[in-house]
Amino acid sequence: MRIAAVVGVLALLVGILLVGAFGLFPLGDSPDWEKLARAYGAENGVAAVVLGTRLYDTLLEVMVFALAMVGVRYTLTPLSRWKEPVVPERGVVREMADLLLPVVIVFSLYLAASGHLGPGGGFPAGAIAGSGLLLLAMAKGIERLSRELHEGTLELLEYGAIGGLLVLGVASGLFGVRGSGLLVLFNLLIGIEVTVGTWVVLHYFGSHRGEI
């Protein structure tokens, strides 16, 4: 009975949406975005929209990300920590991590710094760098690394990056400052924020349930 209701309503929804969606095609020509991109000093149309015209959306989105990480932190903190000893240091893994980590960091820096020219940007860069930290954690043991990366400093970095983004974004909007340097700065700040956020979420998930 319930299955029938679910399947029925979903089938009808799909049907009506498909009929509507087919009516949308063929789409008209893409709007001309190159002028806009040049005005912001970007060669990537997506970057010009994300960090230029619709920077405000991006600011809000960064706050969504940061606040979700705050939520993860406060939700998981009171839960029991994983009691078993973390992964012992293993020679091979450790060396692999030492080798790979610089590559990952350089790659993510490249992604962040060239996001206004080609595909990339602060978000994937931050996610990749955060995963790189996770790789390091696999080798070093998550507790040790989290002691080495001082939590207070990380928070300062994270909220500092958001604050910087907000102030820079509003100021650039109000005073009409534009240019590719600004876009690189935005991307780097977003990258820092997302790296720290990713590290926090992975670290908390890892140390409160299961081992990496």
Partner: peptide, 21 residues
């Protein structure tokens, strides 16, 4: 068209954030 792609970048991050939470 770059606009939908830009919207999508925002949406992906928001979805990840709510999923993690």
């Amino acid at each position: 068209d770059p606009l939908p792609q830009a919207l999508v970048l925002t949406a992906i991050v928001i979805h990840f954030a709510t999923l993690a939470l």
